[in-house]
């Protein structure tokens, strides 16, 4: 990875310089704008106060004080604008990295778009009849001819919570008031990755985190996670410690989950050590949901203000590494090995 990053860093030097030149220009622009607007506002305020109220005031002192106050406020606004600018520019950096890694110039990244709900429903992992679905940061790229999609995904529901409050009436008698409020409960929050599998199947195969039952009250799990089929015990012990495999067709589950693939899925932990749900769907569809990993965190990890900051390379490396790891799933699972020749 380090080698790839260094390669990218050298390739991207020009863009980084441009990034900082634009940032510098914007900073200057915002500061000048802030000072001018503050000066103008303070003058208008002082003159109007003097004209309207006609107090015996020291106009010069008041003007300076007001100008300072307005400048502080305006600089605060400028700082926020600059921060938003950096996040916007970070979106461009992310897209550039995606294009660089995937070598797909038509790759897309939309901050406000999410994976189509129909697609999520078709994967039949989360029960969207009972749950709500939200998402953002949609990425789509063709990596070695495999259409890969990534997006942040939140699956949640609202639960009524009753708070009891002890109150006293006019006569000093105690009574309990019940207030019902909605509380958001998250079932899944993380990243959704879908790609094309190199084998064709005719049944569903679900890989559910092994300790999932512990997180839900008994009987509720199926309200949220819609896996089905028989529990299949596979040969790889490390794999079986992490996942429970469900499928209607045991042979097909073993056809997909070869000893080799189970080892590869174990290897995903080296880059994403979070809880994962994996679904193999009819045809060649395949999806991994990685909990607590979000593209939004990458989007917000902006480059530092100063060009000379030591963190500049580190921050860029953080962004590159995370996007690289998303695409690395393709290589780990050997999805390009369509011909099955080792």
């Amino acid at each position: 990875m380090q080698e790839k990053f260094e390669e990218f860093y050298n390739y991207y030097q020009k863009d980084i310089n441009m990034y900082y030149n634009e940032l510098k220009a914007n900073m200057k622009k915002y500061i000048i704008q802030s000072i001018l607007i503050s000066l103008l506002l303070s003058c208008v305020f002082v003159i109007s106060t003097y004209t309207l109220i006609s107090y015996n005031l020291n106009i010069f002192k008041l003007d300076i004080l007001l100008c300072i106050a307005f400048t502080v406020v305006m600089l605060g606004t400028a700082f926020v604008r600059l921060k938003n600018d950096r996040i916007k520019k970070n979106e461009k950096i992310i897209l550039d990295i995606i294009k660089y890694i995937s070598k797909d110039s038509s790759a897309v990244y939309y901050k406000d778009k999410m994976i189509n709900q129909k697609h999520i429903e078709e994967m039949e992992l989360f029960n969207l009849h009972n749950l709500k679905y939200g998402g953002e940061n949609y990425i789509s790229a063709k990596y070695n001819n495999n259409n890969m999609n990534f997006a942040d995904m939140d699956i949640y529901y609202y639960k009524d919570k009753i708070d009891e409050k002890t109150l006293y009436d006019k006569n000093g008698r105690e009574y309990i008031q019940k207030i019902t409020r909605k509380v958001k409960k998250t079932v899944f929050s993380g990243c959704y990755i879908s790609a094309t599998l190199n084998k064709k199947i005719s049944d569903h195969i679900y890989l559910i985190p092994n300790n999932l039952e512990d997180l839900f009250i008994n009987g509720k799990l199926n309200d949220y996670i819609t896996y089905s089929g028989n529990l299949i015990e596979l040969e790889n012990l490390d794999f079986s410690k992490k996942y429970k495999v469900y499928s209607e067709n045991e042979i097909q589950a073993r056809y997909i989950l070869t000893l080799n693939l189970m080892e590869k899925i174990n290897n995903i932990d080296k880059i994403f050590d979070n809880k994962k749900y994996i679904v193999f769907k009819e045809g060649r569809r395949f999806a991994i949901c990685i909990e607590n990993f979000k593209i939004e965190d990458i989007r917000k990890a902006t480059l530092p203000f100063s060009y000379n900051s030591k963190n500049k390379k580190e921050n860029l490396k953080y962004i590159f590494e995370n996007i690289f790891n998303l695409f690395e799933i393709y290589n780990i699972l050997d999805l390009g090995n369509d011909v099955y020749i080792k």
Binding site: E233, R254, Y255, T258, I341
Partner: peptide, 20 residues
Amino acid sequence: QKVLFDVEEQISAARRTYNA
């Protein structure tokens, strides 16, 4: 070669299931 590889993978899956 492709067809045979796929059949071999299916055999391997069926064999593993049978042995299990």
